[in-house]
Design a protein around this nucleic acid. Structure first.
Length: 457
DNA sequence: AACTGTTTATA
DNA sequence: ATAAACAGT
């Protein structure tokens, strides 16, 4: 078939809500044709993991931001309702587009939908192609010496560091060529994407979703926090971490942009920069593992954990969700999560360990709650994190590594500032509720549960 | 990316 | 008396 020059290309935005360093958009623009930016709301195509409440809050705002950036460049975002196949098909028919470009996603349900859709579009004679816009290293490309995927982080990251990061398409387009006629677009509120208002009332004080918010956050981190990162990153009371996770999840900034910004730093900050990039490395590792273990969101990677004697206790689960465990650091974390849609990583490890080991509740209950409440909810990261804490993952903490919430608080929140901010009403220290389980007892019970799991093998 | 109980080293 | 080192979980 022949490609009419000037026929529009659809750029299908998903989790790449940015205009700079966007390979799909760059490809469309390089074709010299007009560009129709598209977003399709199709949560039912994401299997067991459609966007949770906090994610929908973020997404709604990020799309407003993306549309504003597009309008500033003579373009606009066309919004449609799924199913994606029908929505894209109609857009192609209405606009005469001859190409559809997108940046790849790696969630199992989405990846298989995209593969089928890609074949379908090509069968129609269209140019249809996905690009890598969301990870530094394609999950397929990194292999150990036997040609197998990695299962241990340090070896994985060492292999990554010997490779060059792919070239950037970092130039932000100044204008996007508009099609002769704009297809019809839904207004964002018509998608009914927003969660109930009381669910996310505190989020707006904390976050600025969108591409410009992402770059502001990166700049602030590099200027104000990076030099202290190695020592402050574990202190939840401080702003010692980048807080880029939701921006990275929605692709408002790419890991490549972060990578290059760190490598441009003066020499005295490079060591801290590499400590930070190592965390980007964990994100890469999470995508590597998800790509190679499609069942991992709902199944322990270590098969012996299938026999683990999890307890079903709705009351204890609710107390954990609401931050009423009687352990101030755990409660502070769970309340920070509900109020802001985010929790400091050190505290995530502590609250997750508490659910899985002190309460003996299945890590998937915790993963589900995080999925609904985190603005950075990301299937790859969430799965790796929970399997790591539970001890059932590929390169996980051994199961017997049980956090002591009081010791963790003393070590990482020594002034009690974080706990006071989130868990304690002023002057109520004396009235703090008692622990719902005693640490020593819970620890011994968790170790006994592990022993019984091994015995059953 | 731990914790605990015990032993050993140092002041 | 206290800290560092170690083993087992």
């Amino acid at each position: 078939m022949t490609i009419r020059s000037g026929a529009p290309a659809l750029v299908w935005f998903r989790q790449d809500l940015r205009l700079s360093d966007n390979p799909a958009l760059a490809e469309a623009m390089q074709r010299g044709s007009s560009v129709i930016p598209v977003f399709i709301w199709a949560p039912e195509e994401e299997g067991a993991w459609p966007p949770g409440a906090a994610s929908r809050w973020w997404l709604g705002r990020s799309l407003v931001g993306l549309n504003a950036e597009l309008e500033r460049r003579g373009s606009r975002l066309i919004v449609r309702r799924g199913p994606s196949k029908e929505a894209l098909g109609r857009l192609v028919a209405e606009s005469g587009a001859t190409a559809v470009y997108w940046n790849r996603r790696y969630e199992p349900a989405v990846a298989s939908r995209d593969a089928a859709l890609s074949a379908h579009l090509r069968g129609q004679g269209l140019l249809a192609e996905g690009f890598n816009g969301s990870v530094l290293f394609d999950p397929q490309m990194i292999r150990n010496q036997n040609g197998q995927p990695f299962r241990v982080f340090t070896a994985f990251w060492r292999a990554c560091l010997t490779r060059l990061v792919g070239p950037s398409s970092n130039n932000t387009p100044k204008r996007l060529a508009a099609p002769v006629n704009w297809p019809h677009s839904l207004a964002l509120p018509e998608l009914s994407m927003n969660p109930p208002a009381d669910w996310t009332s505190g989020h707006g004080e904390t976050w600025q979703p969108g591409e410009s918010g992402a770059h502001r956050q990166l700049k602030r981190f590099l200027e104000e926090a990076l030099s202290g990162y190695p020592s402050n990153r574990d202190r939840p009371a401080l702003v010692g971490t980048s807080r880029l996770s939701p921006h990275l999840h929605f692709g408002e900034i790419s890991p490549g942009q972060v990578w290059r910004a760190v490598l441009r730093l003066p020499h005295d900050r490079l060591a801290a920069g590499h400590a930070f990039l190592r965390q980007i490395g964990w994100r890469e590792f999470a995508y590597h593992l998800l790509h190679h273990h499609l069942e991992s969101p709902h199944k322990p990677l270590r098969p012996e954990f299938a026999a683990f004697p999890w307890r079903h206790d709705a009351g204890l689960l609710k107390a954990w969700r609401q931050g009423r465990t009687g352990y101030p650091l755990v409660d502070a974390g769970m309340r920070e999560l509900r109020h802001t849609g985010w929790m400091h990583n050190r505290v995530r490890m502590v609250v997750a360990s508490f659910l899985v080991k002190h309460l003996l509740i299945d890590w998937q209950e915790g993963a589900a709650w995080f999925w609904d409440t985190l603005v950075d909810a990301d299937l790859a990261n969430n799965t790796l994190g929970w399997q790591w804490v539970a001890g059932c993952g590929a390169d996980a903490a051994p199961y017997f590594r049980i956090f002591n919430p009081a010791l963790q608080a003393a070590r990482f929140d020594p002034g009690g500032e974080y706990v006071r901010r989130w868990a304690l009403e002023p002057g109520s220290e004396a009235a703090y509720p008692p622990p719902i389980v005693a640490h020593d007892e819970a620890r011994h019970r968790a170790l006994a549960a592990l022993a019984s799991m091994k015995k059953d093998l």
